[in-house]
Design a protein around this nucleic acid. Structure first.
Lengths: 331, 331
DNA sequence: TTTAAAATTGCAAAGGTTTGCGGTAATGTT
DNA sequence: AACATTACCGCAAACCTTTGCAATTTTAAA
């Protein structure tokens, strides 16, 4: 039973040295064609696969990319993951997908796991509760590059790939004003995320700039449930808003539920505008008008950035992706 | 700069042997308290983490569980993954999440990756296109246990954790008959999956048994787009169905889109009944009535099975989870 | 027929950890 | 004082691969 498929065993059977076998399998020019042939044949026969751990140990780098997101079920992150996955596979990398569930403790544990696995790089969309970035800087200092995407830190001394969040906010503002809306309930996610601040700022400032008559009240909704109840409450008051703006799919989901519950019609009773990846908006009648944030494009960009890190060793960078409006009929 | 945090360096600084350091950190009884204290303190200071690859290489088993699904964005699989993830974390395992995208070639590459990473176990929901299971049996023979879930092979000589698919079909039938429906458009996914066959069989047989007056026509919809167009076509004929049954969230999504497009009302114009994990059904008005398939419960069961494999070394088993009806108002 | 160059191959160390076994020193027992 | 325990600790091999360098054989050149 000493016939596990290892270099040693192949060498033993062929009565040649381990190094020769190793080189033969790598098509090293030093090795004779005849020898290579024999080695390859036997390796094939024995179903040989190099022991990844031994390779990693020796070379001290694993062909793994860590990926930490709050939730993969989120359609946006899923399309990001799918894009990264495809590019990664092409380059021979594996993805270690980890979810933080917006819990900083789990996020930290996941980071540790990445370090433990000597990943070549970590892609991170921050948990909304994360305040302390010291673990990230420590990991980074230990030599593992980190690419932040979507939910990125404010600090500019790192590598970020993100959406043009302020522009997205402005585009939303222009849409609202152009449609002649007067009172907007604008729902945002966790306020300590920079994407929240930027989207909010872009929206409110642009509205103010464009028209003094549009009233806009911003609220924070931390999850789908909250969004639903906030919307329902707001729509049952006598000065109910004519438009609701949702900065994410999570919020949009709650809003749709609330609107359904109250039996309101879109857009007659209430108009809806969202920032979304486009899946949820297609489920209503009429479809929701949204500003598209493509996870797929962001993912490609992230992998491209990774390549640059490997090749040129860059240490800070800011990549920004622009977005466009997709009309649905909800506003 | 020779101060990487390794056993060797700790040993060097403390002037003791590597084995003593190793044992001290593992709280081995052979080591004196005083020594343990010193070692632990220095290890802490140096931020020591054992090199995972060295450990894996030595022990020849990684604390990783492979997980192959067609698509994680699918709400059902996502809740499965979330459940497994939680249990796995508790036991100190990491998840290697891989998507096949229903492509057998990618599925096979993913399997290989699992083998390469010497995973402790593989959880698999088969791609709908997979016919040839030989790679699975080969991997299994090489000592890696495989737990199939949800989309499982027909063969009973393996470990499976799945839903009571035939019963689910029957429950759907009873619901349809009880609501007095007469003509049903029943939409199913890929016919070469056992879950498709069983659900279909359960539904049609039970309907036949319960009532001779219910007409049921079954069709195959391979994706959301197809579902949408099939539904629209069917509903524009003159003998349009009074009820549509959807065997999955994917199909349900397309059906909702189609219904919206045609401006039909649920349930007056058409009643809807689905098999779902519960997310999509909550987005319509009224909510969709569905038979719940809990990914979370299935995930827990799968991890439990994994424990039994490790402890008792079982080699075949069939676990079945039952489901219940959740009333929404769509039928 | 030497000598030089080219073509092959092997040796051995390194990467970090685990672990069986043997060794030393301290303590306890008659 | 002689012996047996007990408490600690270290040696060295093993896990498998990669790779610089040395060693060997073959071929070419002079």
């Amino acid at each position: 039973m000493g016939s596990k498929a290892t270099l040693k065993n192949i060498a033993g059977i062929l009565q040649i040295s381990i190094s020769t076998v190793s080189r033969a399998l790598k098509d090293h020019p030093d090795i004779a064609q005849e020898t290579k042939r024999k080695v390859r044949e036997l390796a094939e026969l024995m179903d040989y696969e190099p022991n990844a751990f031994a390779v990693y140990l020796r070379t001290n780098e694993s062909k793994v990319i860590g990926l930490i997101v709050p939730e993969i079920s989120n359609y946006f992150y899923h399309s990001f993951v799918a894009a990264v996955e495809e590019e990664a596979r092409k380059k021979g990398y594996t993805l270690l997908i980890l979810q933080s569930g917006n819990d900083p403790a789990i996020e930290e544990a996941n980071l540790k796991l990445c370090k433990l696995n000597r990943v070549a790089c970590i892609f991170v969309a921050l948990s909304s509760e994360t305040r302390d970035l010291s673990t990230f800087t420590r990991i980074n200092a230990s030599g593992i590059p980190i690419v932040f995407f979507d939910k990125v830190p404010e600090d500019n001394n790192c590598i970020k790939v993100c959406l043009a969040d302020r522009d997205i906010g402005r585009l939303a503002a222009r849409t609202i004003v152009a449609k002649g809306k007067k009172s907007v309930l604008a729902m945002f996610g966790n306020p300590n995320l920079s994407i929240t601040r930027k989207r909010k700022q872009g929206l409110t400032e642009e509205v103010k700039k464009l028209s003094p008559f549009v009233e806009i009240s911003t609220v924070t909704a931390n999850n789908t449930e909250e969004s639903k109840s906030i919307l329902m409450e707001a729509c049952q008051k006598k000065d109910k808003p004519d438009t609701v703006f949702c900065m994410s799919d999570e919020i949009l989901t709650g809003v749709i539920m609330g609107i359904n519950k109250l039996g309101l019609r879109i857009p007659q009773d209430i108009a809806v505008l969202a920032i979304s990846n486009g899946f949820i908006p297609k489920l209503t009648n009429p479809e929701i008008t949204y500003i598209e944030t493509s996870g797929a494009i962001l993912g490609k960009k992230a992998m491209q950035t990774f390549s640059e890190i490997i090749e040129k060793g860059l240490e800070k960078k800011l990549d920004v992706i622009s977005s466009k409006l997709v009309e649905g009929g909800s506003i």
